[in-house]
Simulated scan of single mutants.
Amino acid sequence: MVSLNGSSALIWDAERLRIANDAAGIALWSWNVDTDEIALDERAHGLWAVPKVERAVTFEALSAKIHPEDLGRVREAFTKTRAMVGPYEIDFRILHDEDVVRWISARGESGDTGMVDRVMFGIFMDVTDRKQVEESREILAGEMSHRVKNLFALASAVTGMAARSAATTTEMAEDLTLRLTALGRAHDLVRPVPGEERKALLGDLLYVLLASYNHRGGVGERITVTVPEVRVGETTATTLALVVHELATNSVKYGVLSEAHGTLDVSCTAHDDDVIMLWTERGGPPVSVPHGPEGFGSRLISRSVCGQLGGSIGFDWPVEGVVVTLRMSKARLAR
């Protein structure tokens, strides 16, 4: 065995192993499979928020802290480790308090290899940060997929609108260019030059966002916008644009903007703390209350309005057209 600095002390003695474990954030545990007693080192006690007491910790006691959705899976996995051969790893959530959830990775060697005198040994690691990154990536991938699908749907719908209102290919090209230009203007408005702190008027934002959906490429005939002077900051302009785009895309696919004579009225009222926007559709296909699980787009709108705009969203389904009520925090809109 190699020695450290010429001394007789072995490199991997207990103290140096403890230093390495602390540096890696590794917590140690052992489990007596006959008595169900679990021994935890100091880091493991802190990781599970289990106080040190004279009586032994049991697997059942730790199970009380495992997230209910993961408990059955963890029980089954640990039971199988007695019969399986080789290393194992399982990630699961534990609850510190009602609102604090941590992700734990339990790792060890199963079977006779990982057991001494009926005691199994392994480690715990806090992998919360990694799990949160993975979750963010999954959400981002879902949003990107959803936006790409909506982009194709929008391109198809805009092309169809242009074709329906044009008598010649030249008119269609001009109409389509007008619509795409309006979309580009909306993008410029909600994505200002980096380093600039700009606020847009809510009416201007809604105008450029909805202009390309009107059959003449502007707002004022099929689509009306009536709003007070409310400022929208750079941060929330993108969120609001996403919400409006989702509502308009749904209208193009299923609502009043899918037909030549449907009308859309967007009106707002401003109060001391809130801005209330009514999205009212009339003259489109007959409307019925949707059934089944909520789609990704609906979840995206709800999360955006409630989380980032500090408000709420509600849907009414009269047969003549959907009515959407968005309540948004005036302070959040100005950010």
Rank of each mutant, 00 (worst) to 15 (best):
V148A: 07
A248E: 08
L47G: 06
V133G: 02
G111S: 06
A153C: 07
A77H: 15
E135M: 08
L40I: 03
A39D: 13
S30G: 06
E89H: 03
T58A: 13
E259H: 11
S3D: 01
Q308H: 13
R107C: 05
A39E: 13
V148M: 09
G295E: 02
E54Q: 13
I66V: 15
A200S: 01
Y213N: 12
V100G: 04
T325I: 07
E69V: 09
I313E: 13
T113E: 06
P228E: 00
L309K: 12
I123T: 15
N5C: 07
R130E: 11
L240C: 08
L205K: 06
T81W: 06
R299V: 02
A44I: 01
V100F: 12
Q132T: 05
T239S: 11
G72D: 12
D273P: 02
W48A: 11
T226W: 01
L205R: 03
V74P: 09
E174M: 09
V50F: 13
G262H: 10
K330G: 06
S251V: 06
V219T: 00
R93G: 13
P192C: 09
I94Q: 10
P194K: 08
H261W: 05
D204G: 01
D265L: 12
V33R: 14
A334S: 10
W317I: 06
L10Q: 07
D91Q: 14
E76M: 12
R107K: 11
G46A: 08
M277T: 10
L209I: 11
T236G: 05
V148D: 03
P68K: 12
E89R: 14
T81E: 08
G233D: 04
R185T: 12
E89S: 15
D22T: 02
G72Q: 05
G310S: 05
